[in-house]
């Protein structure tokens, strides 16, 4: 194994829409603001792609927090935002049943220049998972 640095235990997965939130994250980069490095941004077309199991599996695999950064009501896919909100509602129900803190999953809207909102979301999630640690789940 190469001199890989210490393994980051608390990982945050960010699902960022390619039309709004992903360029929003780039805009934070252009401003050279810093934020915790335990964040992994995946570019998605519409987060409605992910089934309930995807979120639960992520927690099982050891992801500590997930932020879904959508376009909100400005979603280019007619009806997708509503379907997404509904989906996350059922994910929350499942999480409660499995005793996963529901604060580990957040849905938010981030625009292409919403730098502060982006930083805020990341900061809050990071603080939370530093307090409560990775989810302890049976795989």
């Amino acid at each position: 194994m190469s001199p890989q640095a210490k393994k980051e235990q608390n990982k945050i997965l960010i699902l960022a829409t390619e039309t709004c939130a992903y360029p929003g994250a780039d805009s934070v980069g252009q401003a050279h603001s810093t934020y915790p490095a335990n964040t992994y941004i995946l570019r998605v077309r519409a987060p409605v792609l992910f089934p309930e199991s995807f979120y639960i599996d992520c927690f099982k695999k050891g992801i500590s927090g997930i932020i879904v950064m959508s376009c909100g009501e400005e979603c280019p896919y007619e009806g997708a935002y509503k379907a997404l909100a509904k989906r996350l509602d059922s994910v929350y129900k499942k999480m409660k049943k499995m005793e996963i803190d529901i604060k580990r999953l957040r849905l938010t809207a981030i625009c292409t220049v919403c730098n502060r909102a982006f930083l805020n979301e990341v900061k809050q999630m990071d603080q939370l998972i530093r307090e409560i640690g990775p989810p302890q789940l049976m795989v």
Binding site: T19, P23, E74, C111, T112, V113, C114
Partner: peptide, 10 residues
Amino acid sequence: LDCASCITTP
């Protein structure tokens, strides 16, 4: 009330 940049950049 959508963000001007989000409509213009694309």
